[in-house]
């Protein structure tokens, strides 16, 4: 898979009309990617309970192909569900770097968006986007499981627009891992 993704754009770009083949490949690769988003089983605070509820009986996230994985090495989505505090920031970046490309981040809840009710606290990172790139922001304290489903659908839309000729699928800046060296 890696060879195809890395080498095909280079080879096909040299052939006249070869980019047409790329769009078809894009379609299939994106279809596969967006239908099996595997998030990391990882909860920080209150939002994690709503995330669990989304996996459980009534909301049943499996319908979207969303199935939690306990290790970052098998996951493509990190749901930052809860407050990121300064002590947790470094482990969070470390987990993010362990995830394989392409990787996506949903900032779930007000705390992960901007600090939420703890906006003036000495020990809270005011939004997870300060330490890593975020694809979808989801407001709410906590967001309902339906809202989380909507966020995942938005992410699927985003994945549907990815093209392999631009980069290997990640958002700009994601290749280098976290946004800043900390």
């Amino acid at each position: 898979m890696g060879i195809i993704l890395e080498k095909t754009p280079i080879i096909l770009n040299k052939i006249p009309g070869g980019t047409i083949a790329l769009t078809t490949a894009d379609f299939f690769i994106n279809w596969a990617r967006k239908s099996s988003i595997w998030p990391l089983t990882f909860g920080l605070a209150c939002c994690a309970i709503e995330m669990m509820a989304a996996y459980a009986t009534r909301f049943d996230f499996d319908r979207f192909g969303v199935f939690p994985r306990p290790t970052p090495r098998q996951a493509d989505l990190m749901l930052v569900a809860g407050t990121v505090v300064k002590k947790m920031a470094s482990p969070l970046i470390r987990i993010y770097r362990q995830m394989p490309e392409p990787k996506f981040v949903i900032a779930m809840g007000s705390c992960a968006d901007c600090g939420g009710p703890f906006y003036d606290s000495y020990s809270v990172v005011k939004g997870v986007d300060k330490i890593m790139p975020v694809d979808v922001y989801l407001a709410g304290c906590p967001p309902r499981p339906e809202a989380l489903m909507y966020a995942v659908q938005k992410l699927q839309e985003k994945i549907g627009k990815m093209e392999i000729k631009e980069n290997s699928g990640a958002t700009a800046g994601q290749e280098s891992g976290a946004r800043r060296e900390l």
């Binding site: 300064k86 000495y122 990172v125 005011k126 300060k130 330490i131 900390l182």
Partner: peptide, 11 residues
């Protein structure tokens, strides 16, 4: 009298 000094996670 605690004074918060900006650390690497404050922007």
């Amino acid at each position: 009298d605690y004074v918060h000094k900006k650390d690497k996670f404050d922007y």
